[in-house]
Nucleic acid binder design. Structure first.
Lengths: 199, 199
DNA sequence: TGACATTTATCTACTAGTAGGTCAGTTTTT
DNA sequence: AAAAACTGACCTACTAGTAGATAAATGTCA
């Protein structure tokens, strides 16, 4: 865990972050409380406030840590430029399948986006940046794939990127409600078929 | 507690429903309160409880009314069977563009899905039914379009339907956060291009 | 090494405010 | 008069957040 800007934190603080992340992904930001964490970890609310002065601070720390993990994945993907673009895309999509395997997780920023107007501005800005960064990254991969003759794009890469990203977010959302494990799988299948329709 | 079809309701009850619907679509179910409605309409919380005994009852009424509107649209689309399938699809997508025009609305059931685990079971079941019904309807339209030679499907209709539905939900979610009006438009453009790629 | 000071992490007990919800009584409408 | 709509006062539970005490490490220095 020696990521660039990841802070050194105590074990308790990490436990709080882990739990808060899970609670936001499953129940949402408005619907979880310090008491929930207090009960689950067997520490007092005051103790949580010691580590994270306000709920906003906790939310920010959760999102920043989450974003750092994705950024690390972007770097890891870029490291091996000999890979086909489809393999890079698969690597990117992996975490979505990870969430889809659980009965109740969606993307953290997808969950936050569902109640964006109820969030403190610091969180809003971070979700915004997350969405833009992912769509920008996807655009890059699509351009690479098109340039290498691996992908066939029916529209500009940036527009296709928007479709892919939105479809992944939406698929997780629908999957959790309907409980149908095939929701994400089917969507990814169709997306990949359409990318390689010309070859 | 008769949850059959559209019931006779007083003007105040309709105002409460309108506002609750807007608040859920913008802020989320957990993040809105009877006090919010009380303040906005200038009536007391007790008065809201007179019309809707519990928050759950209010949520159910909001969703049922919303679902009825969509069902009416399905019926309206089916009425003119001479239309091309793409026109039917456009008619279906129209409400999504309506929400995208506002700065802060997403699909009601999309908003509820974001915090599905925090919802009373009656609401969960309704969101589930909504998602399944829409994907089933989309599947039907896609099959019709394919049979009439209007659509080219790269995968079974049911899978393409999942992509389209998820992409629409996701696009609204992302659009609200980034504020980029082109998000939904771009996604719909690409989807339509892919449906008519063969013709 | 021993003494003192500081930091870290936790607790109990509390605040002010808000949540959903109840009920007896009053006003308005038919 | 009867039914429907509404109010004000109230309740209990919970919210985020604060104050002050405590005990154990850790750091500093004579």
């Amino acid at each position: 865990m020696t990521t660039t800007s990841s802070k050194q934190r105590s074990g308790t603080a990490e436990q709080i972050l882990d739990l808060a992340e899970m609670l936001i992904q499953t129940r949402g930001y408005s619907a979880f409380s310090y008491q929930d964490i207090s009960d689950a970890l067997g520490i007092t609310k005051a103790s949580i406030h010691y580590h994270f002065a306000s709920k906003t601070d906790l939310g920010i720390a959760v999102v920043d840590r989450y974003v750092e993990r994705f950024e690390a994945a972007f770097v890891a993907i870029a490291e091996d430029q000999s890979q086909p673009s489809m393999a890079m895309l698969d690597f990117y999509i992996e975490p979505y399948f990870g969430y889809a395997k659980t009965p109740d997780h969606v993307c953290l920023c997808g969950a936050l986006a569902g109640e964006i107007l109820a969030l403190p501005p610091e969180l809003r800005a971070r979700v915004d940046r997350f969405f833009r960064a992912h769509q920008t990254w996807l655009t890059g991969i699509l351009k690479r794939g098109a340039a290498r003759g691996e992908f066939t794009l029916v529209a500009p890469a940036s527009k296709v990127a928007r479709l892919i990203f939105g479809a992944l977010q939406g698929a997780l959302l629908v999957k959790r409600t309907t409980g149908d494990a095939a929701q994400l799988r089917d969507v990814v299948t169709v997306l990949k078929l359409e990318l390689s329709a010309g070859s």
